[in-house]
Design a protein around this nucleic acid. Structure first.
Length: 369
DNA sequence: CGCCTAATAT
DNA sequence: AATATTAGGC
């Protein structure tokens, strides 16, 4: 913590000077993107291999705020790099690729990329990447834990119901007693007890009504969940192991199981969309039924669309992915205007702040319908 | 048993 | 709709 972990908000003209690492084995492409990024006033470091990028990042992590990486690269490819960065450094990673195969796009985002840009990347998209940094930093503050390097902070507590807390920090009655047994009526429930639970409630006083608060899967909690799942591999991800990896106190295996069930359902739904080409993740033979997938059109927020035609930018929330996997900037409670914008004379104000926040302000987790 | 998953309940 | 709880199956 000694070294300015978040130099982000110190800078008076923030987006300008933001540290960006670009990785692409295609030198031409690398150069082009680098130039565009510099035109956006970012502080850019370009690498042609994941290895070199990693070496630099590991050494000077504090100097970077975000990483842009191509997907297809020899040796260590973008996904691997993403994985390493995600677990080792805590930087947002944005993927780039000319491959519009949705399975690849989804894979990138599911694995934790904050966004996915299709090549050729346009400068308009790069002008907005700072939003990922802002959002991550902002939400990190609100949720306390984590200041970067330590992937395992012991101070994880389950925040149950009650507050979404924007900037609120009050509240928090002591919930959850250290050890609550008296629940669970599993085996041997033979004796038909009279069950006078109703009896106990009235004027007396707190009848120990342990209203176990429901777990609320905040974006942050969900992120930890996904991280754990990915770490284990989707095939080996089971409640117990996920729970262990998450290390959230108060969270139960049942909680995780429930969420996992929903998560799987959601993943299955995703696969129902575009052809699931790519043999990368052959589902295991063993466990879950792997029945067919219905052929349905790609649908975003209820409407059938072809995302490849509209715009070559993919947003996680447009794809109906879990919130924290990719909401772009524009947290309603955060006012970007507080930050000095780029050199607007050069880049154009509308491009910086006017990138229709309306369509990415939504925050949907598992959108069904 | 413990744990997993699908189904069902809240 | 999101979570919790139950019911069976290894």
């Amino acid at each position: 913590m000694g070294t300015a972990p978040n130099r982000l908000f110190d800078s008076k003209n923030f987006p300008a000077g933001m540290g960006v690492m670009v990785v692409d084995d295609d030198l031409l492409c690398l150069k082009v993107v680098e130039k565009m990024l510099k035109a956006c006033k970012y502080r850019v470091t370009a690498c042609s291999t994941a290895e070199s990028a990693l070496a630099i990042l590991r050494t000077r992590k504090d100097e970077f705020d975000i990483v842009l990486s191509d997907v297809h690269m020899p040796d260590v490819d973008g996904f691997k790099l993403l994985e390493i960065i995600q677990f080792e450094l805590n930087l947002p990673v944005l993927m780039m690729s000319a491959n519009s195969d949705s399975s690849v796009v989804l894979r990138g985002i599911i694995h934790g990329a904050v966004d996915y840009l299709l090549k050729p990347v346009r400068i308009e998209e790069l002008r907005n990447i700072w939003q990922h940094v802002v959002r991550r930093d902002y939400s990190a503050r609100n949720s306390g834990s984590e200041d970067g390097v330590n992937p395992s902070s012991p101070s994880k507590r389950l925040k149950t119901s009650g507050s979404d807390s924007k900037s609120e920090e009050v509240e928090r009655a002591a919930n959850e007693a250290g050890s609550s047994k008296a629940r669970k009526k599993p085996a041997g429930k033979k004796g038909a007890k009279g069950s006078k639970e109703k009896e106990a409630e009235r004027k007396g006083d707190a009848i120990d009504s342990s209203k176990k608060p429901r777990v609320v899967w905040s974006a942050e909690l969900h992120t930890q969940f996904v991280t754990a799942v990915n770490q284990l591999g989707i095939d080996k991800a089971v409640p117990k192991r996920i729970l262990d990896l998450m290390g959230i106190q108060g969270l139960t295996r049942e909680n995780v199981a429930s969420h996992l069930q929903k998560y799987r359902l959601y993943l299955k739904r995703l696969q129902g969309n575009d052809l699931m080409r790519n043999g990368s993740n052959a589902s295991s033979s063993g466990g879950v039924s792997q029945s067919r997938a219905k052929e349905q059109p790609m649908t975003i927020k209820g409407k059938n669309v072809n995302p490849f035609l509209d715009d070559n930018i993919f947003r996680a929330d447009d794809l109906g992915l879990p919130g924290d996997l990719g909401n772009i900037g524009y947290d309603a409670s955060f006012d970007p205007s507080l930050l000095a914008p780029l050199d607007l004379d050069k880049v154009g104000k509308s491009d910086v702040l006017g990138a229709d926040p309306s369509d990415n302000i939504l925050n949907f987790f598992f959108q069904g319908d």
